[in-house]
Amino acid sequence: MNRAALLVLADGRFPAGGHAHSGGAEPAVAVGRIRDAESLEDFCRGRLHTAGLVAAALAAAAAAGHDPLALDTAADTRTPVAALRDTARKLGRQMMRAARATWPSAELDALAAARPRGAHQPVVLGVAARSAGLEPLDAAYAALYETVSGPATATVRLLSLDPFDATAVLARLVPELDRVAATATATARRVAEEGVDVLPAASAPLLDISAQQHATRPARLFAS
């Protein structure tokens, strides 16, 4: 166990491309669905329990050593919107590059060879966590923290929101993040017996619709 590796992996400065993505916050800001710290918190809470839960369970299952290709397919079936599949693979490829340079492993090499255009990011994140000597729960935390910190950071830039308020939002979400991480990890543990179908598949219509809309916007600050 190398618990401190979690700090490296979950650091917003980990060079895996996250800085160019807002996690759906930019389209939400554009139409006023996020306009202050309170609505940012609501947005992050919604994302935590939907996209975050799914990503965390995939990451935890990958970190536990389950077949990353089966998990990658499971991620595809849980991501109906084409723009979000593209984003997940793009970020997965960038995460793969960073992970192979930081925690080289045969498992990362094998996944990179099998998915040269990128596997879904949470799956790569899970395998990276495993290569770093982390536990499935750690991988779930990294996925969930990214789920909420991405929109919070982006909103600071998009709305000139007070950065202290944005960070306080993240702090208020901590108890829920703990619960979702535990749920995701517990579900991932069942994959050995029940297969990948047992993983959560929570959906979020507004995230889906606005992600596809954002992908075709001619002017935007963030890629997603």
Binding site: F43, G46, H49, T50, T77, E176, P205
Partner: peptide
């Protein structure tokens, strides 16, 4: 396709600007 949805009282985050 595998998709879950949960709405209404007790469903976490359902009426947020993400869902």
């Amino acid at each position: 396709l595998d998709q879950e949805a949960e709405y209404g009282p007790g469903a976490p985050g359902w009426d947020t600007p993400a869902v």
